[in-house]
Amino acid sequence: MNKRWEVFQNSSDYRFVPYIMAGDPSEEATIELSLALEECGAAALELGVPYSDPLADGPVIQRAGMRGLAQKVNLEKTIELVSTLRKRGLEIPVIIFTYYNLLLQLGENRFLQLAEENGVDGILVPDLPYEESGYLQEMCSQNNLALISLVSPTTREEKLVKISSEAEGFLYCISSLGVTGIRSEFRDGLDEFLRAAKANSHVPVLVGFGLSQREQIHQFENSSDGFIIGSAIVKKIEELEDELLTNREEAIKTFKAYLESLLPVYSR
C-alpha cells in the first residue's frame, strides 16, 4: 500500500469519491475539475476512460464517454493525465476506471508499467468480475496497485465474504441494480448488505450507483465509510460543457458551488 492509500484509509472522515470522465469536455478541463474536486474534499478520484461500448453505464456517462472519445482520449492518455495531475499538486489516490477490452488491447503489463510511471494508485474494471480477475489481481498485487472490487446486493453471501475480505484500496458496494445513473430510491435491505460487507472488509466500504443528493448521502452514513458519486457530477459537467471550454475559471467556480450544495458539511 502506498502513502496516498494510507492517508485515504486512515482518515476518519466520511469519504467522498467522485467519478469523472477523462477528456470530458477536454483534457485541461479534466485536470482543473480534478483539482477542484480535491479542494472540495474528495478523498480519492475515479477517472473514467472513454469507451465505445460501456455496458455498465447509463446515458449520462455514455454521453460523457462520447465527448471523451471526440477528444481522442484513450487509456494511455488517461494514465498520462494522472502524471500531469500529480505535477499540478493532486495528492489523493487516483483510480483508473476502464472497461476490460481497453486494458486487453493496451496489454496488462504495459498498463502496470504506465500506472507506476504516472502515479496511478488503482484500477477498476466494471466488466471483470471476481471470477475472471485472478491474473490481473496477482499482477496488481505485485505492482502495488489496488484492483478495486465491486459487490452487489445480488452477490451470494460466501462470495461477498471472500471479496470483502480480499478487497484493496476500498470496497465498492453497488447500491442499486442496473447501470450507473441518478436514482430517487434505493432498494430495501441495503443497510444489511453494507453491514455484511463492512464486517468482512479490511478497507473502507464505499457505497455508489445512483447517489445525487445530500439526503441520500446521509442515509448511508452509519452503514458505510464513504460514498461515490458519478452521474450527478458528470451531468453537472455536461451542463457546464460550453463554459468549461470557453470560460473555464467561471465554470470551475460554478462547479465548486454545486459541490458545496451537494456534499455534507463534514466531508468538505
Binding site: D127, E132, S152, T154, T155
Partner: peptide, 10 residues
C-alpha cells in the same frame, strides 16, 4: 468466459 458486471454473475 463471463465478462459482465458483478450484479448479473449470480
Amino acid at each position: 468466459g463471463k465478462y459482465v458486471p458483478e450484479t448479473i454473475m449470480f
